[in-house]
Design a protein around this nucleic acid. Structure first.
Length: 259
DNA sequence: ATGGTTGCCTCGCAA
């Protein structure tokens, strides 16, 4: 079973790339972020014709997350149950024998800003909720745009990024707290940092400054796995080609395969 | 170089 996460940066604008990607990459479960549309405006028919069931949590203009699955989708939760969030950043459901969540963490704008506080608060409540989820001892995967690059190995130029959001010590501490709950960073499980010093696993390149062509990327999209899911982990990958296509998202899909 | 681009749908905001 293949599970992919992708920040599409507007689902309606991305339909041509989604169609081509689905036909070549063939994920069984897709976790989408930044739909940038309300549920009523979501291209249901288009996605169903590609063979997926849909669970949605949309929002006008900003944010919005979805779970697409070739299997029936059950037990859907919208928003973190412990966090009354006006922004659509979390959806969780049971499908194909696994529990999955699609996450769009706040960007945080600037370290110390009001939006940064909101990011920390969002993550605090996410940790508390995941603590509950992990008590159920079922295979669980949470994928999405975490807006955190866990270490300097995940940043094209750590010096340049120092002091910025996505790489701050506070955010990296939070990422480690997630791992300490019993979650595994699926990428680093199969490709540990010490073994891939010469390869990058970036998932996001800024639209600005020709970042893509200069490979100024960061790894900020992740899939974390519970122990029962990690046991079955067989492969991971990034569909990097999509970033070079016409009208691309600024993120690429990241996926993992379970036995 | 406080730069630069994209997507929302407004003439600005978020990323």
């Amino acid at each position: 079973m293949k599970i992919a996460t992708w920040n599409v940066n507007s689902v309606r604008t991305r339909l041509p790339i989604i169609e081509e990607w689905v036909k070549t990459s063939e994920p069984d479960i897709i976790l989408l972020q930044e739909l940038k549309c309300v549920n009523e405006a979501f291209p249901n028919e288009f996605i169903e014709d590609l063979g997926y069931n849909i669970a949605l949590h949309g929002q006008k203009t900003f944010n919005g997350v979805a779970i697409l699955s070739k299997f029936p989708i059950e037990d859907i939760t919208i928003n973190l149950p412990n966090f009354n969030d006006p922004q659509a950043r979390y959806i969780e459901a049971f499908t194909g024998g696994v529990r999955v969540a699609s996450l769009y963490a706040p960007n945080g704008s600037e370290v110390g800003s009001e939006k940064f506080s909101y990011k920390l608060s969002f993550y605090k409540h996410l940790c508390l909720h995941l603590e509950q989820v992990l008590q159920h001892n079922e295979p669980f995967l949470i994928g999405g745009d975490y807006n955190i690059a866990p270490t300097d190995a995940d940043v094209h130029d750590p010096e340049k990024w120092k002091g910025s959001v996505l790489v701050s010590p506070e955010e990296r501490t939070i990422f480690h707290q997630l791992l300490n709950l019993g979650l595994t960073d699926t990428l680093r499980d199969l490709h540990p940092e010490e073994k891939c010093q010469k390869e990058d696993w970036y998932t996001w390149w800024d639209y600005r400054s020709g970042a893509w062509h200069r490979n100024w990327g960061l790894r900020i999209d992740h899939i974390l796995a519970s122990s029962h899911a990690k046991e079955k982990l067989s492969a991971v990958g990034i569909d990097r080609d999509l970033r070079g296509m016409t009208r691309p998202s600024d993120h690429t899909p990241y996926w993992c395969q379970l036995k």
